[in-house]
């Protein structure tokens, strides 16, 4: 199957900063990709390039279209939620559904109404009368009713409480995602999406520093909890990161020999957030 997104030498430069520095990556269909990086690393720029919202240099192919010149066609196949607060404040639930139903060829109205029936939203309600959580429920109901091949989510749960956040990702998994769809998501709440991601891309200062699938992470990276007596030996193996917990040290290794590590202490798979912190060390320094 063809890749959903292929970027070659993708670059974007603002006046005095480099947002994206000749980046290469591919995203395959049927994946849920986490695009993770510190503030200002270039995540949003990359997403904007994919959505044809910004000019860039290099090559970018999204579902066989060039987002610069074929954006109108592309948007029939791509959906995005930019963040929580982008629905127009004056619009009513009824109007939003009517409008999307009549301008989007792949929108399924009955499906949308089914999703809305599960919420407390009423047809006459205006967006400005809704809480952030309700706005995202409406937006998600609209987007999930569109049979798109690529869904792009840029910090979709920012500022929501944990109930809405859980519900958001749960709905996506249960009612939307299947092997024909692809989701790209950026977020800072890494712990919450860790278990739903199939692929991970770390981005830092406009460059991709890690591009891997989740299974490979367990094989490549390892965390060992080491007592103080063996800490020096552990340090000699060149860990990515070291932190202290209850008088013991936890070392994070990239591609180290598992047999050797097992000799040092208890071995486990690192969490994405620990991996992230270790990879991004010194970003803001």
């Amino acid at each position: 199957m063809n890749a959903v997104v292929t970027a070659r030498g993708l670059g974007k430069r603002y006046k005095n900063t480099v947002a994206l520095d000749d980046v290469n990556f591919q995203i395959q269909p049927g994946r849920i990709v986490g695009l993770i990086g510190p503030n200002g690393a270039g995540k949003t720029t990359a997403l904007k390039a994919i959505l044809g919202l910004t000019a860039f240099h290099g090559q970018l192919d999204v579902l066989g279209f060039d987002p610069r010149t074929q954006r109108d066609k592309l948007m029939e196949q791509v959906c995005f939620i930019a963040d929580v607060a982008v629905l127009p404040r004056w619009i009513r639930v009824r109007e939003a559904v009517d409008f999307v139903a009549n301008v989007h060829p792949r929108f399924d109205r009955a499906k949308c109404e089914r999703f809305l029936a599960r919420t407390k939203l009423t047809p006459a309600q205006k967006v400005k009368q809704m809480s952030k959580g309700m706005i995202v429920q409406l937006h998600l109901a609209l987007v999930m009713a569109i049979d798109a091949r690529l869904l792009v989510l840029d910090e979709p749960t920012l500022g929501l409480d944990i109930l809405y956040r859980k519900q958001f990702y749960q709905s996506l998994l249960e009612d939307y995602f299947d092997e024909h769809k692809t989701i790209i998501v950026t977020t800072h709440q890494v712990e919450e999406i860790e278990h739903i991601l199939t692929d991970l891309i770390f981005i830092r200062d406009g460059r991709i520093v890690l591009d891997t699938d989740m299974d490979a992470i367990g094989e490549r990276f390892a965390e060992v909890m080491v007592g103080a007596d063996r800490a020096a030996a552990a340090r000699a193996l060149g860990p990515l990161d070291e932190r202290q917990v209850f008088g013991k040290s936890i070392f994070l290794y990239d591609g180290a020999d598992r047999a050797v590590l097992e000799g040092l202490g208890e071995l486990r798979r690192p969490s994405v957030s620990d991996l992230f912190v270790a990879t991004m060390k010194g970003t803001y320094a």
Binding site: L51, L53, D72, K73, M75, E76, C79, F80, I81, A82, A85, V86, L87, P88, R89, V100, V103, H104, P105, H139, V143
Partner: peptide, 17 residues
């Protein structure tokens, strides 16, 4: 107005030229 309140991003997520 829609650039200022960012609802532009919603309108631009639809296949409208």
């Amino acid at each position: 107005d829609d650039r200022r309140d960012r609802s532009l991003l919603f309108w631009k997520s639809l296949p409208i030229s």
